[in-house]
Design a binder for these strands. Structure first.
Length: 873
RNA sequence: GCGAAAGUGGCGGAAUUGGCAGACGCACCAGACUUAGGAUCUGGCGGGUAAAACCGUGGGGGUUCGAGUCCCCCCUUUCGCACCA
């Protein structure tokens, strides 16, 4: 520290309160961090990636972009600390790193804030972005801001509109009147993915209602099969996320079978004349055991029947209410099955049998066809239902077992196994289930009453939102020409400003005549503009492509740039986006590939889902009052300490229990490093590192060198493999502790090799610390007199020869119990080690007078002497 | 109900392949330097004992020379799915 600064700090200390002069080597994070902060601020392109096409190997590391709420929380800090450490590590390993950041800046909170504070959403949002960007910079995150993406800006959302037109062109965007999820708090529609246990994803206390609305949909179901199939390729993704997506897509192979309606005399008819009920089943092999048809209460045929029958209407309404209750109940479990007979019948096309049609509360209209054939003997739900209403239960499959006793005996009902043999099934009796399914599906298809088919749980993505702060959907409604897309050349459809959203009923944009009234590009006549905006998940479905070419104003991005950078090598974010964001992103990628924009099938090579930050056993939240503010942590302990602690306190994939005392410990550690390096800086800077050879070192020095190389290995291995940064950091702490002990024990003699060694160790220590604590690392880099930039300085090399122990301490067990320790050369022969072990006093006394049954030596690990048991006691 | 992950000192966590349980850090205790300590340094720190022995990784069994780690049964927590035909 220059003397002037020293003096300043001394006087400052005295005049304030009690900052004593002999603590002037204390690490002052505020001073050091603000110094580097200033420098970095003056170098806006410090972290800019090399242009795409660079010779260097590329590495694209990405953290999920935040919603600009106005302040970072600890979850962000943790997320970005992981990504930043990785980006810096890859830089130091010579990669061309792309590490961008942006803002998912459309969405409801801006509208609520606008109403509350009387601030326009745009102003509120941009103000928040500025605040959060400053926070990120203060934390020292190395982002390439030249590629910043802000989704609420026209230069971004015009490409949302462009993509929408492409979807429309390809027949993958369509409009339909449908029953939609409506959140009364958001006052807008929710996608299926945004409904959790019958409640709004952002309002856990609010039940979602059903409404009939005209909506725009994107045909994600066209890619259902590929989205499912390609999950197999994503072996860099957590299995948990893949399972969740697999469940969400919900592929199910089965058969559609049409049952003819049986018209009773004088019934007045029901359903379409000559009509049928189509059912979906995965077990067509059990169709001879079908003893009723069960319809969803919302089924059109039920509506028909109920229209003429008020009594039935009331009962069906009751079933609908029960069904809704079950959905809302979430984890409370299944409700009791209820049903109502319609007193109508349908004909089983296989055996021509007449079976009753019921309406049941356990049949869902939005899965399959909303109708099933009920086979009580071979389905648990059907069994329960049939028992309750005394419907016939007919066994048509018998178990086949290796045990002859069991084979062909009557099974316990319901018998749902797939590996049985058919009975009571006409010409199909005697077949096994799998074969029967094939033959029966074929028969149905040949006779025009059914076919093999695949059903998905995944539904098309409803993207219309009746909100203001979003991307306008670029569509027009002309009286003459109907639905007309806005021509590409007219994009973007600009979201108007100065819109009074506080009293809006329905879509706020619909109250703006100057927005609504437009001209039809086809006929030149008057047209009405679409006033709904897009779901904000559209924005985040492709934003990471925009980073590759963020300022392109004639395409969403340049294909070559995307081809260079994609797929994303490492994506890091919360598991809460496992379905919504990550499935939409995969869908968008596949669509862009089919457009010819990109060549990759999947956007993300490796996905990492970090754990939550919790405090006092609960997720941080304002209502619980356990929120830790990053600003406060930075002010008290510094950015390095906050970052380091968020990596140290737990492995990154697990939840992190925040403890203020823990971060204080990290600050102590950083101070220790700082003091060590400042004390030894001058000695280190004069020594030549090249003169160092293991042979010239004293045992104590060799030990330090060994520890250094072991630490380099541990930290490097973790970056390459399992990402347990908590153990990386503890390894660095061990190294520092060892250095400290070494320093204490070293006398002033042999200074020259000592300082040469110190030069090497300090340099490498600083490099090891650089990805985690960039401020301190840069400061120390300067202090030891290094001239070049630390940012991309080469990562230290691990030398196995230098890391190798020369002597080992081997624990000696007798019958698996630790009795002594011996020190042997690392390459000692087994016989030598065993002799030494048997000569150990404690071992001797444990085995005196006993016969040695067995001697075990695990090289380098331990010795175990086995003597007859019992005699040891 | 089904599936997955987890359960280790007072606390966060370590033990990467079946081989010294508790690394590293926090908290705590004692000491040193101090007018002072929320600075720094040294030592201690699972239970138990004077010291040993011994006990100890959710519980119970098993395999093994040896088990936190493998196998079987059970308990608890978290997450995901849940009338999906």
């Amino acid at each position: 520290m220059p003397p002037q600064d020293k003096l300043q700090e001394m006087t400052a200390g005295v005049s304030q309160r009690s900052e004593p002069d002999r603590n002037d080597d204390r690490y002052n994070p505020q001073r050091v961090e603000s110094k580097w902060f200033e420098r970095w601020q003056n170098e806006p392109n410090l972290y800019a990636a090399d242009p795409s096409g660079s010779e260097k190997k590329k590495y694209y590391v990405l953290e999920m972009l935040p919603y600009p709420s106005g302040a970072l929380h600890m979850g962000h800090v943790r997320n970005y600390s992981i990504g930043d450490a990785l980006a810096r590590y890859m830089w130091m390993n010579g990669y061309n790193v792309l590490h961008p950041m942006g803002w998912d800046s459309f969405g409801l909170p801006a509208e609520n804030a606008a109403i509350q504070n009387n601030t326009p959403p745009r102003q509120w949002t941009l103000g928040n972005i500025a605040k959060m960007k400053a926070q990120m910079n203060r934390l020292g995150f190395a982002y390439d801001w030249s590629r910043e993406v802000t989704t609420c800006m026209p230069d971004y959302y015009r490409w949302n509109q462009w993509f929408f037109l492409k979807f429309y062109e390809k027949g993958l965007a369509y409009r339909k009147n449908s029953r939609v999820n409506w959140c009364p708090k958001c006052c807008t529609v929710l996608a299926n993915e945004q409904v959790v246990d019958g409640r709004c994803w952002r309002h856990e206390d609010t039940l979602v209602e059903q409404r009939e609305l005209e909506q725009w949909f994107l045909r994600i179901t066209k890619y259902a099969d590929e989205l499912l199939r390609d999950l197999e390729k994503l072996d860099g993704w957590p299995e948990k996320v893949r399972t969740m997506q697999r469940n969400w897509i919900g592929r199910s192979e089965g058969t559609l079978v049409d049952f003819k309606l049986d018209y009773p005399e004088n019934s007045g008819g029901f359903g379409p004349a000559g009509g049928t009920i189509s059912v979906f089943t995965t077990r067509v092999d059990t169709i001879y055991g079908a003893t009723s048809i069960q319809l969803a209460p919302q089924h059109p045929i039920v509506a028909d029947l109920a229209a003429a029958n008020p009594d039935l209407r009331a009962k069906v309404d009751q079933l609908i209410a029960e069904q809704r209750k079950a959905k809302e109940a979430g984890d409370i479990g299944e409700i009791e099955k209820h049903g109502v007979p319609t007193n109508r019948y349908a004909i089983n096309p296989f055996n021509k049998e007449k079976i009753p049609i019921w309406v049941a509360n356990y049949i869902l209209m939005d899965y399959g066809t909303g109708a099933i054939m009920s086979v009580p003997a071979h389905d648990e739900r059907d069994y329960e239902f049939a028992k309750k209403y005394k419907l016939e239960i007919r066994l048509v499959v018998l178990p086949i077992s290796n045990d002859p006793e069991e084979t062909m005996t009557e099974p316990v009902l319901p018998f749902v196994a797939h590996d049985g043999m058919l009975i009571n099934s006409g010409p199909y009796s005697g077949l096994d289930c799998a074969e029967a399914i094939k033959k029966m599906s074929k028969f149905a298809e040949e006779n025009n009453f059914g076919k093999a088919t695949v059903t998905y749980r995944l539904k098309d993505w409803g993207i219309s939102r009746q909100r203001y702060w979003g991307t306008p959907i670029p569509m027009l409604y002309c009286e003459k020409d109907g639905i007309v897309p806005v021509p590409e050349k007219d994009l973007p459809v600009i979201l108007p400003e100065n819109v009074d959203i506080s009293h809006a009923v329905g879509s706020p944009l619909s109250s703006l005549p100057e927005f609504v009234n437009a001209t039809c590009p086809n006929c030149g006549g008057p047209a009405r503009r679409e006033t709904d905006t897009m779901d904000t998940f559209v924005d985040s479905s492709w934003y990471f492509y925009r980073y590759t070419d963020a300022h392109n104003d004639h395409a969403p991005f340049d294909s070559k740039a995307a081809q260079y950078w994609f797929p994303i090598d490492q994506y890091i974010g919360g598991v809460e986006h496992a379905i919504l964001h990550l499935i939409y992103s995969r869908f968008w990628t596949k669509f862009m590939r089919d457009l010819g924009l990109i060549t990759n099938d999947e956007p993300v090579e490796r996905l990492f889902t970090q754990g939550m930050v919790i405090k006092d056993g609960a997720k941080m939240s304002k209502s619980l009052g356990n929120v830790v503010s990053p600003d406060e942590m930075v002010a008290r302990y510094g950015a390095d300490a906050a970052r380091l602690y968020s990596l140290f306190a737990a492995p990154p994939d697990r939840d992190l229990d925040w403890q203020d005392s823990g971060i204080a410990g990290i600050q102590r550690f950083l101070g220790k490093v700082y003091r060590f390096v400042t004390r030894n800086a001058s000695a280190a800077s004069i020594a030549s590192v090249d003169t160092l050879s293991a042979a010239s070192l004293s045992p104590a020095e060799r030990q330090i060198q060994r520890k250094l190389h072991q630490t380099i290995k541990r930290v490097s291995d973790d970056f390459q493999g399992r990402w347990h940064f908590n153990t990386c950091i503890s390894a660095i702490m061990e190294l520092v502790n060892a250095l400290h002990a070494y320093e204490e024990s070293t006398t002033s003699q042999a200074k020259s090799t000592s300082s040469a060694l110190l030069a090497e160790v300090q340099r490498d220590l600083i490099l090891l610390l650089a990805p985690f604590a960039p401020y301190l690392a840069h400061e120390l880099w300067e202090i030891i007199g290094e001239k070049g930039s630390l940012l991309k300085a080469p990562w230290p090399k691990y030398d196995p020869a230098l890391a190798k122990e020369e002597e080992l301490e081997i624990p000696v067990q007798v019958n698996g119990r630790l009795r002594g320790r011996i020190v042997v050369p690392a390459d000692a022969a087994e016989s030598v080690v065993l002799d030494r072990a048997l000569a150990d006093e404690k071992v001797k006394s444990a085995i005196t007078g006993k016969q040695i049954v067995k001697r075990i030596y695990v090289p380098g690990k331990l010795v175990n002497i086995v003597v007859p048991s019992g005699s040891v006691k």
